Simulated scan of single mutants.
Amino acid sequence: MLALPPDTGPRRVNSNLKWLNDNGFIKLEPRRGNTPSIKLISTEDPDGPYVRASEQGRYVGMPMEFWSQGWIVHLSATGIALLFVLLEALGGYTEPRYIPSERRSSYGLSHNTWTKARKELEHNGFLLVKRTPQGSDFDYQRLRNSYWVDEDRFFDPPGALIPPASPLYQPPSQ
């Protein structure tokens, strides 16, 4: 199902499992005469039991069309990472929102990665970026990028034209 070659696939899977174990994401528990069992480790309390993200409150879900329409293959890893970040950061807002620099840095994406992925998502019709003033009436107001993800784009196949009803649609220039 992962489309790994039979000669090197198992070695790659074992190597990745070892890396996850060595870096504290999982614990491999050996089982005699069988593959090791995998125990998920809690990121907040490594000694405590693992708790699903949905039970902790906030999590990000992707529509099935992300996979069925082929976006998982079409977008780069950085584009997918920023898509997850923006879906989490925007938290269901229906209008463009500014993401403070402290919040952006908490995701661990470099400025270069953020910019490259942003351009990719804009090009593919997922992302609307607007310049909006930030600050109160008595402060110096600066223009900042505000982001909005068009979740309806998941339903279109990669390469499809952006429909005119989408806020991201731009008519062809004459």
Results as ranks from 00 to 15, higher is better:
residue 161 L to T: 14
residue 53 A to T: 14
residue 162 I to H: 01
residue 123 H to T: 14
residue 89 A to S: 15
residue 51 V to F: 10
residue 78 T to R: 09
residue 98 Y to I: 14
residue 53 A to D: 13
residue 130 K to E: 14
residue 105 S to A: 12
residue 29 E to V: 15
residue 173 S to P: 12
residue 152 D to L: 04
residue 172 P to I: 00
residue 25 F to E: 03
residue 7 D to T: 15
residue 58 R to A: 11
residue 134 Q to G: 08
residue 50 Y to A: 07
residue 70 G to E: 04
residue 71 W to R: 01
residue 54 S to L: 08
residue 86 L to Y: 02
residue 102 E to S: 14
residue 171 P to G: 10
residue 124 N to I: 00
residue 17 L to A: 11
residue 173 S to V: 14
residue 110 S to M: 03
residue 117 A to Y: 03
residue 99 I to F: 02
residue 57 G to Q: 05
residue 5 P to D: 14
residue 67 W to D: 12
residue 91 G to S: 10
residue 113 T to W: 00
residue 47 D to K: 13
residue 116 K to M: 08
residue 19 W to S: 14
residue 29 E to T: 15
residue 7 D to P: 03
residue 107 Y to D: 06
residue 100 P to F: 02
residue 9 G to T: 07
residue 86 L to M: 02
residue 92 G to F: 00
residue 43 T to Q: 12
residue 141 Q to R: 15
residue 137 D to F: 10
residue 147 Y to Q: 07
residue 36 P to V: 06
residue 124 N to F: 08
residue 23 N to Y: 04
residue 121 L to D: 10
residue 157 P to R: 05
residue 71 W to Q: 04
residue 129 V to E: 04
residue 3 A to V: 11
residue 163 P to R: 02
residue 74 H to N: 09
residue 32 R to P: 06
residue 1 M to T: 12
residue 53 A to R: 12
residue 5 P to H: 11
residue 12 R to F: 05
residue 92 G to W: 00
residue 8 T to R: 08
residue 150 D to G: 08
residue 148 W to P: 00
residue 154 F to C: 06
